[in-house]
Amino acid sequence: MTDSDASDPRPRDKAANSGPAIEVEGLKVHFRTSAGLVRAVDGVDLAVQNGAFHGIVGESGCGKTTLARAIVGLQSATAGHVRILGRDRADWQRANRKGFARSVQFIFQDPLGSMSRRQSVLQTLEEPLRIHGIGNAAARRRKVGELLDLVSLPASVLDRLPRSLSGGQRQRVSIARALALDPRVLLCDEPLSALDVSVRAQIVNLFARLQDQLGLTIVIVAHDLAIVREVCSAVTVMYLGRVAEEGAARPFFADPTHPYSQALLSAVPSPDPRVEATRVPVLLEGDPPSPLNPPAGCRFSTRCPVVIEACRVTEPQLRAVQHGGRSACHLADTSGHPIL
């Protein structure tokens, strides 16, 4: 095996390997369509720290899924660089595709679509082990048992086909499969959105436990800010292909500075009707604009309740703000600091 770090015992201690697990620089993903050039991801810088549980949040069309796919090379980038675990991702994949797959795994939004309909759970979980030549039949069987335990599935599911499983069980199988090769980095595209509320909480807890037990770096793409707030240690808010704001979760949620982050938080209703009886949520006008022709200046300027003239002219760049993260709003931390 030429790939040294893939065969090394994995550092389980989060502190043992600090620094970014994922570094994204100037990433652009543009699609040519019959309607024109879609700038799905349009210049994103992102750092995901080792051992972080990092949430990427935004609405449809903001580019969050495309970004995640481009990070792992499922989507080719128009421009920019991605480094994972200190190595250039494109070089790594070219030189040692299997080694890369052992370190970095991706979980799709629709578990059913990512599994073979004719393969039992046992076959689904054994497949990566077989492909990577890990262990003999007995050892693989043992590993499958461990994986089931890890995601709290009973051994009785092993003979079943994906179709006969519930949504939550399927998502557990796809998580178990992603963990089969003991990866260090896990990216998940909306792993919760197809699930019912009570099952969603089960899967959220599962992610939190795995992250804690295995010291994984987890990136989760979500549109549900409330869930991200519950479990993530860091947050990136995207709007129309760009990062609007980012930071460590606790200080960010205590004091979001970008009006879009504030509106996104405000849009989540309280489950307490007494709170809702008096609360006036921030209502943005209209839908997000099309990534076919993003507005000039700040991309949020067409819907921003506190927009000033400069916003329509100059696109704000990410800069450090008080909560310790960065915000792409001209007004953040100024005398005109937005408070929605």
Binding site: E59, H223, L225, A263, L264, A267, P269, L283, L284, D287
Partner: peptide, 11 residues
């Protein structure tokens, strides 16, 4: 619906 559109429709 997206969160901000959801809030509009509820209103």
């Amino acid at each position: 619906l997206d969160a901000t559109v959801q809030a509009q429709i509820l209103a």
